[in-house]
Simulated scan of single mutants.
Amino acid sequence: MPIPPDDLGRELVVTDAEADGAVHIALAGDTYTMLVTGAQTGGAYCLIDMHVPDGGGPPLHRHDFEEMFTILEGEIEFIFRGTTAIARAGTTVNIPANAPHHFRNRSGRAARMLCMCTPAGQDEFFRRCGDPVDGRTAPLPPLSADELNERRQRAQTLAPQYATEML
């Protein structure tokens, strides 16, 4: 099969989590910085820098796309189909599509990881569910119980549009 021609409409993406204009989203007790979006990759994948404070992490969920995490700092507890694995800095974890999973930082200090989702879409889901913050390690917005409940409801409502199921 021949290789298609170069898509001149696509641009080189060079960024980092501290770049001016970086989008930082507070969600599930974490801050997710959009490094490379689906819009920039023609929907092929997205890359998200995740700052996960002690105790942070999303609820149990599953989705129909691959998700890969590389731990940059600290350690994260991954729960995959009910089995727990601890991933430390330098470790890469791949979550197959459709598998129930979640992660939690129980290390006593903040952790940082990169998350790549293939194909893209998780970046938009996070943007629509979370709250913008000023930086990767900026304080999370103080949310009332009603506001937290509204964010959970928003995620539940939007999840099917992003091939995600909250369990």
Rank of each mutant, 00 (worst) to 15 (best):
A17H: 07
E67A: 08
A22C: 03
D49I: 10
A85C: 14
A155Y: 11
R152F: 15
H102E: 12
H102S: 10
A97T: 09
P132G: 10
T15R: 07
L27I: 14
H24L: 09
D20K: 09
G74L: 08
E150D: 09
E11N: 14
C46H: 06
A44V: 12
D30H: 01
Q156T: 11
G82Y: 11
H63M: 04
M34H: 02
P100N: 10
R109K: 15
I79W: 09
A44S: 05
A17L: 04
L114R: 07
L114A: 05
I86S: 00
P139V: 08
S107E: 03
L27R: 07
N94T: 15
Q153E: 14
R152T: 14
T84S: 12
D64S: 14
P59Q: 08
A22V: 11
H101I: 02
R136I: 14
A120M: 03
H24G: 01
A145G: 02
R104E: 09
E11M: 06
A22S: 10
H24I: 01
D131G: 01
D20L: 06
D30S: 13
G38I: 14
A99T: 10
L140H: 14
I71R: 05
A17Q: 07
P160A: 01
E147L: 12
A159E: 05
T137M: 10
R112F: 13
E66L: 15
G121Q: 09
D134W: 00
G42H: 04
Q153I: 06
F125V: 10
Q122R: 07
T15Y: 04
P58Y: 05
G38E: 13
L143W: 05
A99K: 06
A159P: 00
A155C: 12
F80K: 08
G29V: 08
H63C: 09
C129S: 07
D6N: 12
I3G: 04
Q153V: 14
T164L: 09
M50K: 06
L148G: 13
G108E: 01
R88F: 03
L148M: 12
G43R: 00
G38N: 06
T41K: 08
P53Q: 03
D54V: 13
